[in-house]
């Protein structure tokens, strides 16, 4: 007999996630993941479902406006914030696979709309209920990420700079090190920028290029071919740079690794 409402950790102890009175989660997939990495979105959905969540995908969502905000176009970013807030208003919690988009919603939406009485509270509500994917797993579902990971090849990682508010390079390191059969190849520099930086990569390719080269050199030297990278922007930059140079690196979001390890998705080679 399962109680009507069960705390996630109780459900985990009794091994009955599926029976859990589902936690309702709205997926904020982000425009880059939606467009370039649909498999990451799928993995997030499957992993969340596995751990007892009822996942919704509000189809009104588009982009959170981060590129505009980072470039100093506050008005444009605020317009997209005002558009996004009502889309997620009906849901209890919002989960996103991107830490930088989570920061946009959690930190910058309230800043952008601080002077607008109509929006201030709604922005604060959305900020409070939005979670970066791994943070949600750990804090709301009490999931030990490392314990669920397994790899059949050496693995290294790229720590996305904008994940700092959600987790640190050491956390990422520990999850992967906790994975079964993991041959973790730690890059020499555990938190080195990939050179993406939104419009920066387009504004200053002359600078972004050498930064990307530094990061790729470091990752390639780690010896692993599988790179865990939890940020669509970084992956877009790194994978594109690796392809240009003919480096045999492959990139995966930790959600994909979890989904594969848990048997929720076919492993992709």
């Amino acid at each position: 007999m399962i109680p009507a409402r069960m705390a996630p950790h109780e459900a985990r102890v009794s091994g009955c996630y599926a029976e859990l009175d589902a936690v309702e989660v709205a997926l904020f997939v982000t425009c880059l993941t939606d467009t370039f990495f649909p498999r990451v979105g799928e993995a997030v959905v499957r992993v969340l479902r596995h751990f007892g969540c009822r996942v919704e995908f509000p189809e009104g969502q588009t982009c959170c406006g981060q590129p505009a905000f980072n470039s100093g176009f506050d008005a444009e970013a605020a317009a997209l914030a005002r558009r996004m807030i009502p889309v997620f208003e009906p849901y209890e919690q919002v989960v996103t696979p991107s830490a930088s988009c989570a920061t946009m919603v959690k930190t910058h939406f309230p800043e952008l709309l601080a002077d607008e009485a109509r929006w201030r509270e709604a922005a604060a509500r959305l900020a409070a209920k939005t979670y970066e994917f791994t943070t949600f797993l750990r804090e709301k579902l009490d999931v030990d990420i490392g314990a669920h990971l397994s790899f059949d090849e050496p693995v290294t990682f790229h720590f996305p700079c904008h994940a700092r508010e959600a987790y640190g390079p050491d956390d990422l390191h520990n999850w992967l090190a906790g994975g079964k059969q993991a041959d973790l190849c730690v890059p020499e520099h555990s938190d080195l920028c990939c050179g993406f930086g939104g419009l920066f990569a387009v504004d200053y390719p002359e600078i972004s290029g050498p930064m990307l080269a530094d990061r790729l050199e470091d990752l390639a030297a780690s010896g692993a071919r599988l790179v865990i990278c939890n940020e669509g922007g970084c992956t877009l930059s790194l994978a594109g740079g690796a392809h240009r140079r003919g480096l045999p690196l492959r990139f995966k979001h930790v959600a994909e690794c979890l989904a594969e390890s848990l048997g929720l998705m076919e492993p992709e080679r």
Binding site: F36, G195, A201, V202, D203, P205, E206, S208, G209, L212, A213, L236, S237, A239, G240, G241, H243, R244
Partner: peptide, 10 residues
């Protein structure tokens, strides 16, 4: 062109 100055775009 700027993006693909140093990387390809999938």
């Amino acid at each position: 062109g700027a993006w693909t100055h140093c990387r390809d775009l999938p």
